[in-house]
Design a protein around this nucleic acid. Structure first.
Lengths: 140, 140, 140, 140
DNA sequence: TTTT
DNA sequence: TTTT
């Protein structure tokens, strides 16, 4: 069992790429407020990397932008890689199974001058919910 | 909202330390099986760092050992620190609010020759459950 | 382990009462969309009873109203009671540990003509988050 | 969003049935310990109905028995039905997407004299995990 | 109705 | 590096 559930805001627009096999993958970071204040009385946040695959990746890239509030559920994955000088480094990220919009498209600040979340008819949200993917079907 | 729920086995005995203010903190890593197999048909695992505070830290240090199966719930925290050569590095860890034993003490392989989980009377487990701490009371 | 996490909208204003010992308790029902459509292609919802205790109950009663979108986390409780004709009946409800506002107060339809969520200074939300209570402190 | 995560013990063996369309469905109840003690100092439990569909239903029926410890994740569903005298009644149950074994088959008390969880080769557990189903594929 |  |  490995479940992560987050509510937070995107710190930047999602980045959409494709694997050599043509599988869509999108990355973004969520700013998630901590449940307490620090010694200076300020509310800090955790900046949590999220990765999304397949159709959900394209839907996120089409509709999500910096500042949007979303709920993400998925699993916590630790990827291990080697740096150029041979050091082992780990990176943690949440592999999202589901992403749910929590504010209306018009409210978030738009950062891409040419994009238009409203006019894209290539995927139908069916409400605020991006639908769910089966984690077992993921290409990795 | 920031919730993480894991079931996995400790890769090593917990490490117990104390902050300068005398607050107990324990660290261990959980091996959590992934829900699918890789291309070679092998079941991989994520190795997820867990940190536990206060009385729960001491209870974990007293009763948990390498190989024990536990359920952890908490929140995902991203800590940022600087290396000696001035690089910014990030580390993700699960701050546990609750840890639940899922196998009997006798089943797990013991790694510390002198330790004795059974004879420590300083904390009473009241069953398999370590109890719950309030994340808002944590000293950080 | 018993964790429930919901995102949904209040079907009515919360009802606030007090136990004989003076402990505040609020009840409301959340409409939570199901992740799929039924045979007619319509999206149904589950109507899930939520109970909130102590200060969190008063904060919910002061600030939540019919139609508001919230995230709730807590545990699933099955209460058993006897009807007047001696039948045993069960009721399930989510005992909330935390409630998080997910839309601004002005957006939701107001149903109480005299209430004013904005002018109540008796509790400070400190943002959108009601804070967290310790389930172990609950009076039942 | 609607997520439930439970760890508890089966109060009875699962009941396996088939819908008119031949879809397998299994029911069982989990006893989930509450995180606190009542006024008499006793630890109570919630008795939570769980429903499992399709292949996972048959796997549960084949391998789970009264007393087994499992972790369940799924969603909370409120079904509404009418009694013979025309009253509207609600029943809550957790629709499981995943069920994970948390103790070995040999440890739990067996209640069915002829059953043999070990000799059934019709489904391979691949460890302790029943695999995951996609809630969107469910036949209801 | 209930599990350990 | 970061969101409101």
């Amino acid at each position: 069992m490995n479940h992560v559930i987050l509510i937070g805001r995107l710190t930047r627009d999602p980045e959409l790429r494709y694997t050599p096999n043509g599988v869509a993958v999108a990355n973004f970071t969520l700013a998630v407020d901590r449940p307490f204040s620090n010694q200076e009385g300020a509310r800090e946040a955790d900046f949590i990397p999220v990765v999304v695959w397949q159709k959900l990746a394209e839907t996120c890239a089409n509709h999500l932008h910096k500042g949007r509030l979303v709920a993400v559920d998925g699993r916590l994955q630790i990827r291990s890689y080697e740096t150029q000088d041979g050091q082992r480094r780990r990176v943690a990220e949440v592999v999202a199974a589901n992403v749910q919009f929590l504010d209306r498209a018009g409210e978030a600040r738009r950062t891409t001058p040419t994009g238009d979340a409203g006019s894209d008819a290539s995927d139908d949200l069916g409400g605020d919910d991006f639908g769910e993917i089966n984690l077992d079907d993921l290409p990795f």
